[in-house]
Computed example of a mutant assay.
Amino acid sequence: MTYTAWIIFTAALVGLSCGIIGVFLILRKTAMMADAISHTVLLGIVIAFIVTREVSGTAMLIGGILAGVLTAFLVQWLHTLQVQHDAAMGIVFTTLFAIGVILIATSAGNAHLDVQHALMGEITFIPFHTISLPFIGEIPEATALLLFVLAIVLFFIIAFYKEWKITSFDPALAASLGIPVLLMHYLFMGLVSVTTVASFDAVGAIMVVAMLITPAASAYLWTDKLSVMMIVSGSFGVISAIAGYYIAEWIDTSISGSMAFATGLVFLISFLFSPKHGLISKQVRVAKDV
């Protein structure tokens, strides 16, 4: 593939993975946990770098996953101590992210790892760092990682589809049926973390948050069926990635920022024109009733 095609394909993988995972964040009313985890994984990545002195690889993935699960655990723990859930997220998110920033400044200053890179990523560098895979050949390392993570996400979503559905809509019923609700919660946060870490280097925290929340929120306006919602959300993520790239090329600006902006455009269109919940659609139905 061409240089441009690799960038778009990699971004589309981010949009697809985050779009699917994001549906459950929206349904569980924990959308802002995506913001918290997308920032706190920085701490896990920095610690993994300090230990291994490498800015990619399995150690980064494990470090990010552990940081994400730690975030979920600390938020839940503070909540059990009567701290409001949103306040607990704010405390944990800012503290762990700040520790990560401090460690970057003091222990990782000479590496290709800085706060700007953490927030916005650098997707234009992705095609230059390749690995060779059997039957496939040369492929960007970040793209291969995202393909692997997408396979993991799809496996767990399909394997535990019934459990995800019940725990998302009615945790009390799930507990009464013997489903380990807390374990499923931490497993889900692990999936959010692994998706975030895999996307982090390419697109940064800002686009990860946008892709985890906005396509799913848009899909929620179009359908009430969970399986369809996941397909629509993943599709919106891919569309946002493609449209965002060409917006960035058109006005010569940040690719990741433009992709995040494109998710907002998709939501605006959905908010206005979706058949059931769209603002204009509602006005048309009211006019017909009159």
Rank of each mutant, 00 (worst) to 15 (best):
A151D: 06
S107H: 15
F125E: 04
L147P: 02
D201C: 07
I280W: 11
L221I: 07
F97L: 13
V83Q: 11
M1K: 09
S240H: 08
S199N: 11
W77A: 14
M33E: 07
A172N: 13
S258Q: 02
V14H: 03
M189H: 06
F160N: 10
S56K: 00
I206D: 00
A262C: 09
S107R: 13
S107W: 02
S254K: 12
F236A: 10
L265W: 06
A98Y: 07
S193C: 03
V55R: 00
W77V: 04
E54R: 08
T2K: 12
I62R: 02
L279A: 14
A72S: 11
W250P: 07
F160L: 15
V228F: 06
G204L: 06
S38L: 09
A34P: 01
I206V: 14
A260K: 01
I157V: 14
F148Q: 05
V115W: 09
I206K: 03
M33L: 09
T253I: 12
V192M: 01
G278Q: 04
I99Y: 08
A105S: 13
T94C: 09
T106L: 11
F261S: 07
I126Y: 01
F24P: 01
I26N: 15
K162T: 07
S270I: 03
L66M: 14
L265C: 10
G109P: 10
K165Q: 13
H85K: 08
A243Q: 01
V209A: 09
G137E: 08
F148R: 03
H277G: 04
L191Y: 04
I65V: 15
A36K: 03
D170C: 06
I50W: 04
I255T: 10
L16D: 03
L265I: 15
